[in-house]
Amino acid sequence: MKGFLDQEFAQGGVLVTKADDLLNWARLSSLFPMTFGLACCAIEFMSTGTTVYDMDRFGMAPRATPRQADVMIVSGTVTFKMADRIKRLYEQMSEPRYVISMGSCSNCGGPYWQHGYHVVKGVDKIIPVDVYVPGCPPRPEALIGGILKLHEKIRGESRVKPVEIEKLMNLPKT
C-alpha cells in the first residue's frame, strides 16, 4: 500500500476517517524525544539521531525541555541520585507522554543488578514505562525498533470513554 501522502484523493480532497485514527497518526508522526542521556546507552541514542540512522524521518527532533517533549527515552543507568530528577522531569512533561526504557540498566539494573548499591533496579520503579528495549547497549536499529513498537501502541489508542465501551459491552445480546 502506498503511504498516506503518496496517495491521490479523488473526492475534492475530502477524507473520511475516525478522529482516533487522525489524532493517533498525528501524535505518532511527531514524537519529540527529550534531550538527555544517562550513560553509555546515550551514545547509541545519539547515533540514532545521526544521518546514518536518521531519527528525524520519524518526525523525532530532540527537544531540550520536558515541556515540549512527548517521549522520554531513558538511555542508561538510573542512579538513585538521578532518580528524583527523572521523576521530576517526567512530571514536567505534558500529556500524552510516553517513556521508552533503553538498555538493560534502565530495564532492570543491568550489570549493576547485584552489587549496584547506587542503581535503581529498573526505571519502571519510579515512572511508568511503555516500551522496553533490551541490550547493553541496544544498537540504534534496536532503539528504532522500540520507537516503532511505541508507534504501534499509540496507533491502538482510543479517546472513546471507557464508560461508552462498557455500555456497548453490556448491551443485551440479540
Binding site: F80, K81, G109, Y117, V120, K121
Partner: peptide, 29 residues
C-alpha cells in the same frame, strides 16, 4: 558523589546498603 542524605560509606568492606532509598527498594527483586 552520593546524595547528601545517603546513609553509610559504600566502599567500606562491611557496607550494608539501605533497604529503601526515597521509597524505592534498593536490592534487585
Amino acid at each position: 558523589l552520593l546524595p547528601a542524605d545517603w546513609v553509610g560509606h559504600p566502599l567500606r568492606k562491611d557496607y550494608q546498603h539501605q533497604e529503601y532509598y526515597h521509597g524505592v527498594h534498593v536490592a534487585y527483586q
